[in-house]
Write a protein that binds this DNA or RNA. Structure first.
Lengths: 163, 163
DNA sequence: GAACGAGATGTTATAATGTTTCAAATCTTG
DNA sequence: CAAGATTTGAAACATTATAACATCTCGTTC
């Protein structure tokens, strides 16, 4: 199984978080984008797991932090993080997940487990190429691509089979 | 250009609507699903153009009809239509569009013009296969697939180039 | 170091999208 | 026609997202 499949397996997750934050600092520094405390905190929260969080989930945690934030605070942080390629919005869930390819310009896809809610982000050249061909065939100029596959991850499939 | 590319070109749209409604009746009859007046009206409204409509857009038109509907009325109609493969929800737009492959079991993708807002629905075996391969490689069991490509359609690209 | 300006954040209000719940009406089937 | 199932009506509410404007922070310039 590829290293990318981690979210579906137990792993040293604090390493994920640490690496993500570290990469984020690098990316922001190189772009002269300011990774302020709020933005960094939101990114850290999103990376707490591989389950996408909603904006209001984030707000709730910030409230526990003692930070009395309003929705725009979170949405602005999320906008910043998206613009700098640090998080993705999962349209079918209205939720946000950490980008595992920070800084890379990429078309990615998501495998979303409906049972455990974990999300695996992948880049799939074959899919990207096929989609690009389809667009070209229709003379369509693609700009933003959303590919989200909902289903069951291997672990949850197994549990499901035992029912 | 394929016949499927119609939304981006002038065409006899009332034929689209007529055919869609006719197919819907056939599909529902064969499934013993009841295409009630509200459901049919919602489907007809969705087919008024190839631009996806939001649930509240539909509500507004129903209000003009003199039909004083509340949100659940529309969402229930939309649920029914989706379940019977007559409309699709475009997750990235929170909007609904008529299915051009009614009754067929298919994985489709959408080319969404950000300028004119028209949407072209396609089935792309190469994309479907590539996605299926990716899922298999991760031992993931896919159930629902969302593929939405936002960009510029040929007509709008042309206008854009002239700026 | 004071004044300025740009970017970031705070605050309030509101918009847009979607769901829950229960009651009433309608259709279907025996 | 009576009973049960499906559909619709209606009110309230939940969730997600944005608009508008005030304030703060921090680096730059004078």
């Amino acid at each position: 199984m590829s290293a990318n499949a981690l979210p579906y397996r137990p792993h040293n997750h604090s390493a994920c978080v640490h690496q993500a934050l570290s990469e984020a600092r690098t990316v922001c520094a190189s772009r002269q984008a300011r990774l302020t405390p709020i933005r960094e905190r939101v990114l850290e929260l999103i990376w707490q797991s591989h389950k996408p969080l909603g904006a209001y989930d984030l707000l709730a945690v910030l409230a526990e932090d003692g930070h009395n934030a309003a929705p725009p605070t979170v949405y602005r942080a999320l906008d910043f993080l998206q613009q700098n390629g640090l998080v993705h919005r999962i349209a079918s869930l209205n939720a946000f997940t950490g980008c595992t390819h920070a800084g890379e310009n990429h078309t990615c896809l998501f495998l979303i487990c409906r049972a455990c809610r974990n999300v695996l982000e992948l880049t799939a050249p074959d899919v990207t190429r096929a989609l690009s061909d389809v667009s070209a065939a229709e003379a369509f100029t693609p700009e933003e691509t959303t590919i989200e596959v909902a289903g069951l991850c291997p672990s949850c499939k197994e549990s499901d089979d035992h029912d």
